[in-house]
Simulated assay, not measured.
Amino acid sequence: MTRLFIVYRVLALVVGVLLLVGTVGFVLKYGLEDGSGLQQLGEDLTPVWLVHGWIYMVYVVVAFVLSQKARWSIPQFLLMMVAGLVPGLIFWVERRVAERLRADHPELAKR
C-alpha cells in the first residue's frame, strides 16, 4: 500500500474511535445526574473532543490529497468529510474508500 493510503486508513480509524469515545463522554456528561461517577467520567472525557478536532483536520488534508490523486468527485470527498463527524459512519466509509481505491486505482493501494 502506498504511504498516503496507509496514513488515510490509520487516521480514519483514529478519528472514528475518538468520535465514538467523545460521543459516549457527551452522553454520560449531559445525560446523567450531576455528581455521579459516570457523569464525572463524561466530564473527564471532554478533552477527547479537542484531540478529535486536531486529528480530524489532518484527516481532512490527507483525504483531500487522496481524493485528488484518485481523481474522485467532490461528492465523494464530501462523504469522506462527513464521515468524520457522524459517529460510526467513518468505519463504513473507510472500507468503501479502500475497496474503490483498490478497484479504480490499484497503484495507489498496492499491497
Rank of each mutant, 00 (worst) to 15 (best):
M1E: 14
M1W: 10
L4D: 05
I6L: 10
V7H: 04
V7F: 04
L11P: 06
L13M: 09
L13H: 14
L13F: 14
V14S: 01
V15E: 02
V17T: 06
G22W: 02
G25T: 07
G25P: 09
F26K: 08
F26Y: 13
K29A: 14
K29P: 12
Y30T: 11
G31I: 05
L32H: 07
D34W: 04
S36C: 07
Q40T: 15
L41H: 02
G42K: 01
E43R: 07
E43S: 10
W49C: 11
W49I: 13
L50S: 14
H52E: 12
W54L: 14
I55S: 03
Y59W: 12
V61M: 03
F64L: 15
V65T: 03
L66D: 12
S67V: 00
K69T: 11
R71H: 15
I74T: 13
I74C: 04
P75N: 09
P75Y: 09
Q76L: 15
L78P: 09
L79W: 14
L79F: 11
L79D: 00
L79N: 11
M80E: 07
M80I: 11
M81Q: 04
M81I: 13
A83G: 08
A83F: 03
V86K: 04
P87W: 01
P87R: 00
G88M: 06
G88A: 06
L89W: 04
I90R: 04
I90A: 03
F91G: 03
E94A: 07
V97S: 01
A98T: 10
A98H: 07
A98I: 09
L101R: 06
R102M: 10
A103N: 10
A103F: 08
E107W: 10
L108D: 06
A109N: 02
K110H: 12
R111P: 15
